[in-house]
Design a protein around this nucleic acid. Structure first.
Lengths: 221, 221
DNA sequence: TTCCTCAGATTGTTAGACAAGAATGCACGA
DNA sequence: TCGTGCATTCTTGTCTAACAATCTGAGGAA
């Protein structure tokens, strides 16, 4: 990690900016698995007060991007197989409900379609990081399009860990570049046709494949 | 609200104790809808520092028990019909997944059975507050018994609002005391028989009834 | 009446400090 | 040599005090 860091001044709150900066560094793998993040270290690097760093760490901990218990230093977690399965079980629960609800309306969310295009570009250009980013955006768009604030918040609670794990294991590199896009397309098609159960099935298949790719990376190489 | 307050010294962290104390006062209706909670006020009442009060408020806000935006005072929210529907939609998503998973094992969670007994006692003795408490405990036990940490965390994210709303509208008073217990029993029975879809259906019916009771209270009297 | 300005109230952030819990390494004994 | 126990050190939890930024509401001007 570099000894200096700058914050974008976009967000109104300093804590927000700090949180967002650290979040990106974690999910991109810039801060690796097992790395310790102390409050003073972050405060020094970003030139903020310790309470500010503390607040950012607490928010990251709430989203599962850091682990810490009382009086102990926050650590970037390493998810083992059992936790990845738990993560995908929870994810499946939310996203299945989302695509079913979307299919009931028959409208394909514009943001999801846009993310789909971004995935294809990223896959073509071999931009792995963008590909992960766009994949997360696709799934996030599906959930957000339902319009349920609470479903969206629950999804936020777990999608960060998905992002983290994908970045760590770089599972997408295992998939043929177009595989993910095809699986996504099947989901969108079912939504457009208003077939709730088909949409849920395609989503379930896609997530099972994604989980399989992650787990094989975990045990394989 | 009284001008003084004491904290139980059980939890290791002062913030934890403060958070828990305020949480109880909110869900019990002791702090009513629309009430403003400023940081200094809480800090003064509980005799803690303002940053400590701030941390507790932030945790309550994350669980939906308070609402606040930047530079504005935290307020106990009032859920309108649309939000109650959204809340129950999200709740349904999680709890359906939970009871389906439980039915797949065929084991009735001991904690849920215990809560069920507590509900019957509370209903018999007309202890409304205990009844609500036990109802929340029942549903929480169902989700916890699945053993998925993330599903449990997502449920925690919304069950607080359910508790808050039930306390505010006192919807259980509308139900014949044994109605809730019977609906719960049907869910447990389906779980024991290993019938996932029946368990999900009974749960859906129960939650629809509960939502209906809340909404009729909202518009009716 | 309506809009604007300003003062008070509230939150965001910082600095410095002390206490309590956790982790580390070293010395001592078996 | 190896393991145990203690003490140092690091880190976090909490507090006090203060200033800056923002919001709210009241009062005055058009």
């Amino acid at each position: 990690m570099s000894t200096e860091a700058r914050l974008e001044l976009g967000p109104s709150s300093l804590t927000d900016a700090l949180y967002e900066s650290i979040r990106k560094r974690i999910v991109n793998g810039e801060i690796p698995q097992g790395e310790k993040l102390t409050e003073v270290r972050l405060a020094t690097e970003y030139n903020v007060a310790r309470p500010t760093a503390k607040a950012a760490l607490e928010r990251l901990t709430a989203l599962g991007l850091l682990r810490r218990t009382a009086h102990k230093t926050a650590v970037v977690p390493v998810l083992d197989e059992a936790e990845i399965r738990d993560l995908f079980f929870s994810r499946m629960t939310i996203e299945k409900a989302a695509v079913s609800a979307l299919a009931a309306t028959g409208e394909v969310p514009a943001d999801a379609a846009r993310a789909q295009v971004a995935i294809e570009y990223a896959a073509r250009d071999r931009l792995f990081e963008n590909q992960v980013e766009a994949d997360i955006a696709f799934h996030t768009a599906l959930v957000a399009a339902v319009g349920s604030r609470r479903l969206t918040r629950m999804h936020e609670l777990i999608i960060g860990e998905v992002h983290l794990t994908m970045g760590q294991y770089q599972a997408h590199r295992k998939a043929a570049p177009t595989t993910v896009a095809e699986e996504h397309a099947a989901i969108l098609e079912a939504i457009q046709q208003g077939d709730s159960s088909a949409a849920a099935d395609h989503l379930a298949y896609h997530l099972e494949q994604a989980q399989g790719r992650l787990l094989s990376t975990l045990s394989g190489d």
